[in-house]
Structures are given as structure tokens and as C-alpha cells.
Design a protein around this nucleic acid. Structure first.
Lengths: 177, 177
DNA sequence: AGAGTGTTTTGATGAATTTCTAATCAGTTA
DNA sequence: TAACTGATTAGAAATTCATCAAAACACTCT
């Protein structure tokens, strides 16, 4: 993954693109490229070394010169492959939660309160994140926050208490899980 | 051409790649993305606006939110297409010169002195570039510079004078064209 | 070994860019 | 219209990175 970002960074520079375009036509060497691009050999060397380390170009000595050539395979991939993150292995529990959340929320709103207890707990936990641990809320506040996600704040508020996520004392609510 | 470089620059940033990967899964909006990536909305907005200007993403309002979505076509092209410079139309004379030079030089050395007068002139002009206008060279210096390109420096030196590229006065040489 | 060439490294400089905080803007809904 | 919420902009701090000059290095050929 990290390499993909590195590759993109290397390609996102005008000078390096110029160099690659020269190498696209024919293999070449530091001084020649420097001359053609009106830059110093030190600069060209700097770029070529970077690209070599990333496997974009290869080099080999020939007489006085060190001839650089393109590693053309790299450029055949479609762009999508370069931006797509490799899947990370998440443990299945975590994955299931994400799945449920993604199914029941749309544009940040809860589309429906799940009937299955397990799923309901996941969805409620998600809303619960909006509450801080170390303060008290009065009912009006609780309702307003929940309203952000769903119109039926009564059911959700009640269920949160049923699941032991919230406690209620003297009309005041507090997050406890 | 400029746009290709811009596109690559935009893709070469970790945060933007993260954003794109989220959008790859589903359309989203500033606050949600900010939350998922643990960055401020200002930062996400900054990136999305940049990408929108480049046509990578589109946006439209929906209720409270401004929903951003991917412009997926962009990512289907192979990478090569992004790095390759569009051909510039060079006038044919210029093109012919490049052709001749590329034919007669190999690794910066002149492989053979062209017999055709026209081609010889082009090749000599190329070597001539190594001489400054505003200074005198003694013969030894001239020979050394030419030797860089070809062993028969005598012929080349003589021809340069014949073509009116160099002048000789009292054993001193000077570039005049 | 030593002269001559092309290549690479080092250190400094300056430009570009990401990120944040704070303030402002722009829709939505009561 | 007023109050709310999310989006955007402005300004500042910090980082990254390309470039060059000069010195050091590596190879070739006498």
C-alpha cells in the first residue's frame, strides 16, 4: 500500500515526468538528460536514483555512461489499481458491525430501527457515541441528539437504557457504557 | 498536458487517497469523512474542493448535507496515458534536424561524419554548441572539445571553419555562428 | 598510477503544500 | 425571520521537497 503512494508521489513531479518521457523514447544517461532538460546533472541524478529505488527505472553501465531505462510494465496498470487500498483483514466481529451500520444508516440517518436484538444493539451503540461519558444530560438534550438520527427518539432512548448504555436518575441521563 | 500533472499531484497525497477510498465504497459528506479519518472538516473540505476543481469528484446538496461522489471514469485509464506527454507539433525542419542528430550520435558520440553536406552542417552545429561565443580558443582546446565527439577532430575543425561557424586568426579560434 | 570523464553525495536555500483554529457563509426548518 | 447545522474561507505554523554548487566518488584508458 505504502508503495502505491510512493509511486504516485514520484510520478507527480514535472521534472520526473519529463525524464520518463525521454526514457520512453530511448534509454539515456544523466548528462544527456540534464542537457536536454536544461537542468544540472546533480538534479537529474537525484530524480533517477529516487525512481530507481522505486523500481520505475533500471540502470547499467556501458563504457563511460550509466544507461538508464524504463521499467515499462509499471505503466500498464489502470489508475484505479494505484489508488485502491489493499483490503485490511478486520476481525469478523468488527466487519459484521460495519456491515450492519452501513445497512441501517443512510447519509448519517438511521433508516429503520432493527428488529433483531443483536443488530439493534450495534445501531444504538453507534448513536451512543454522540454522548460524552462525564456529564449529565436532561431529557430534552437526549432527545435532540437522537433526533439527529431518527424521529422516534422515545423508543431509542428507552432501548438505550434497556441495553445498559444509559442510566436515568432524577430526570437526568448519563452515558455508562 | 498540464492537467495530467495536476491530476497526478492530487492523487499523490495520503489523505486524498483515503478520501477517495471512502468515496469508492459510497458517496459521503464532509463531516462524516472528517470523522472517519480523524481530521477536521476544514481539512477535508480543502481536499474535496481541490479534487472537485479537477473533476475527480462531484458534489450536490441533499438536505443538510453536501454529498460528494466519485467521477469513476477517470480511474479507468492506464497509467501510461497519464505520464505520456502529448505530442507537440514541431515544424518539419526542426524534426528533420532531430532525426539526423539522433541518427549520427550514439551515447553522445558522433558515429560517423555525414557525407551529405546538409546533414554534415546539422551535425557540426550540434558540436558547435559546446563553444561559447565570447571567448577565444587555442587549437589544443578546440581539439579536446571536438575529441569528445569524434576522433577525427582535424576534419571537424576544418569543416567548422568552412561552414563559417568558426573563425581562425593568429592560431586562435572563435565561434561566430 | 594518474589523468580524464561521467556520476553521486552533501548541505543550503527557497517554494509549495498540508493542517489546524477561528471566523464566516449558506441552506433548512420552526 | 431567527436559530441551527454543516460547509467554506482566511491566516498561520510546520513540513516536505526540488534545485544547485561544490566536493567526493567510480570507472576507463593511457
Amino acid at each position: 500500500m505504502k508503495e502505491k503512494l510512493e509511486l504516485l508521489k514520484l510520478l507527480a513531479d514535472e521534472t520526473r515526468l519529463d525524464i520518463l518521457n525521454l526514457l520512453l523514447k530511448e534509454d539515456s544517461y544523466v548528462e544527456k538528460i540534464a542537457c536536454e532538460l536544461s537542468l544540472t546533472p546533480a538534479t537529474i541524478c537525484y530524480h533517477l536514483k529516487k525512481m530507481e529505488a522505486a523500481g520505475i527505472v533500471n540502470c547499467s553501465r556501458s563504457q563511460f555512461y550509466i544507461i538508464y531505462s524504463l521499467n515499462r510494465e509499471i505503466f500498464e496498470k489502470p489508475l484505479l489499481e494505484l489508488i485502491k487500498k489493499d483490503k485490511v483483514i478486520i476481525d469478523t466481529e468488527e466487519k459484521y458491525k460495519k456491515e450492519v451500520i452501513s445497512n441501517f444508516f443512510k447519509y448519517g440517518r438511521l433508516t429503520q430501527i432493527p428488529t433483531q436484538r443483536k443488530k439493534r444493539e450495534i445501531v444504538l451503540s453507534e448513536i451512543l457515541k454522540q454522548f460524552d461519558f462525564d456529564r449529565m444530560y436532561d431529557e430534552k438534550e437526549v432527545n435532540e441528539i437522537i433526533l439527529h438520527y431518527h424521529d422516534d427518539f422515545c423508543t431509542i432512548r428507552r432501548e438505550m437504557i434497556a441495553f445498559g448504555m444509559m442510566s436515568r436518575n432524577y430526570e437526568k441521563y448519563k452515558r455508562i457504557k
